[in-house]
Simulated assay, not measured.
Amino acid sequence: MRVYLPCTLPALARVAAAKELGPAPLTGYAVTPALVEWYASGDTEELEYVALTDAARSSLRMLAADRADGVEAAARRVVVAAEVPDGIVEAGIGIEERSRVRLTRAVTMEEIAAVHVDDPSAAGDVEAAVAALPAADAGDDDARFTVDGAEAHELMWYATQEIPDLVE
Rank of each mutant, 00 (worst) to 15 (best):
V79K: 05
A74T: 07
E111K: 10
E97Y: 10
P85H: 08
G94S: 15
I95C: 04
T108M: 02
T104I: 04
R98D: 01
R76K: 10
V115G: 11
H116W: 11
D118C: 09
R98K: 14
E110H: 14
V84E: 05
I93M: 06
H116C: 15
G87K: 09
I112W: 08
D125Q: 15
T104H: 11
D86M: 03
D125W: 00
E127V: 04
T108C: 01
E96F: 08
E90Y: 00
S121M: 04
R77L: 09
R98S: 02
G94L: 10
A114I: 11
A82Q: 11
G124C: 10
E127N: 15
H116L: 14
G124Q: 15
I95A: 15
A75M: 13
V126K: 02
R105Y: 07
D125M: 05
E110K: 15
E127G: 14
I112V: 12
A114E: 13
V89Y: 00
A128S: 15
R77I: 12
D118H: 12
V107G: 08
E110V: 08
V126R: 03
P120S: 12
A81P: 03
R100V: 03
A123W: 05
R105H: 06
S99E: 01
S121Q: 13
A122L: 05
V107N: 05
E110M: 05
R105N: 08
A106W: 01
M109W: 13
A113S: 15
G87P: 01
I88F: 05
A106R: 08
A106E: 07
A122H: 04
A106D: 05
A74K: 10
A91H: 00
S99R: 00
A114C: 14
A82D: 12
L103F: 03
D86V: 05
